[in-house]
């Protein structure tokens, strides 16, 4: 037994969960897959007076087709996406990302909602969902709100979630047939958190989105690179490198030379992959 003591409750519906979480004012926290929270509790870098088990709430498990895409319940696991049994609006990108997260035993229980709420800078879902322009629905004591991923995540391990607020679903817009994506992850070991992770989505009539994430750099949109791709879809590699470097000095001002070179190489790989015919 390694975590400090806590109480445990398993509410039977979402309203009850938010009520307990609101009353706890931060000393009560939700546990979903537990695949990040458990090690954090064991290492005692996180603590709670009450753990509110949201892993069985049916409200977080619904997956439905909407007019613009697919809405996934926050408790959708990485493995469910990996296995391709759910509808996929991303034309394979989400499957690719899911299957590279950690290891199967972790993917069986870890959830998309948990990954977004934790906002680990090196996590895969925030980067992927940011590149896809996903919308996150949050339920709290004062009702619902829907935000984009950049609005949700303020920085490493920091989100706008207030005590009592629970992510309930993530809506991923359908990628047009002509859109292309690229994904590249550099980690020391397969399944480990990324040193550098990039997702690029271009074409299909939408504005390009290029995202970098990794080690200390929270998922961030690379706007210079994206607008270069919008203006000049076949921009030269040198021009891309310049745009990427400019973006990195903005989104990762404290990154050292090694980190910037690693990030730049991975972004370039993702963009080049997305530009393949």
């Amino acid at each position: 037994m390694k975590p400090a003591p806590f109480d445990y409750v398993r509410p039977s519906h979402l309203g009850e969960a938010t009520e307990i979480l609101v009353k706890g004012q931060g000393s009560a926290i939700p546990i979903s897959g537990g695949q990040s929270l458990m090690p954090m509790l064991s290492l005692r870098v996180a603590s709670a007076e009450t753990l509110v088990d949201i892993s069985r709430l049916f409200e977080l498990k619904t997956v439905e087709e909407t007019s613009t895409g697919i809405s996934y319940g926050a408790a959708t696991t990485h493995a469910a996406i990996e296995d391709g049994k759910l509808p996929d609006p991303s034309r394979g990108l989400m499957h690719k990302v899911a299957s590279g997260i950690s290891y199967r035993a972790v993917r069986n229980f870890g959830t998309m909602g948990g990954s977004l709420a934790l906002a680990d800078p090196a996590a895969d879902w925030p980067a992927c969902l940011m590149a896809l322009g996903a919308l996150v629905t949050i339920v709290g004591p004062d009702g619902n709100r829907t935000v984009t991923v950049p609005e949700l995540i303020e920085g490493p391990y920091t989100t706008i979630l207030a005590p009592g607020e629970v992510i309930t679903s993530i809506e991923v817009p359908r990628l047009p047939a002509e859109a292309r994506w690229g994904y590249s992850k550099f980690a020391r070991k397969s399944g480990a958190f990324a040193n550098s992770l990039s997702v690029a989505v271009i074409g299909g009539g939408n504005k390009a989105r290029v995202v970098i994430a990794g080690s200390s750099t929270s998922s961030s949109l690379l706007t210079d690179t994206a607008s270069l791709l919008d203006r000049t879809p076949d921009a030269t590699e040198d021009d891309l490198k310049t745009a990427i470097r400019d973006d990195l000095t903005k989104v990762d001002p404290n990154g050292d030379d090694y980190q910037h070179r690693s990030h730049a190489a991975i972004v370039l790989r993702a963009v080049q992959q997305a530009r393949l015919p």
């Binding site: 398993r10 537990g34 458990m38 090690p39 753990l51 199967r104 035993a105 972790v106 069986n108 229980f109």
Partner: peptide, 20 residues
């Protein structure tokens, strides 16, 4: 590693009470 309802799981990352 054990299985929970047939799915491989890390038993070190799982609370026993969550397996009720």
């Amino acid at each position: 590693t054990v299985t929970i309802n047939g799915l491989p799981a890390r038993s070190c990352l799982t609370l026993a009470v969550m397996c009720e």
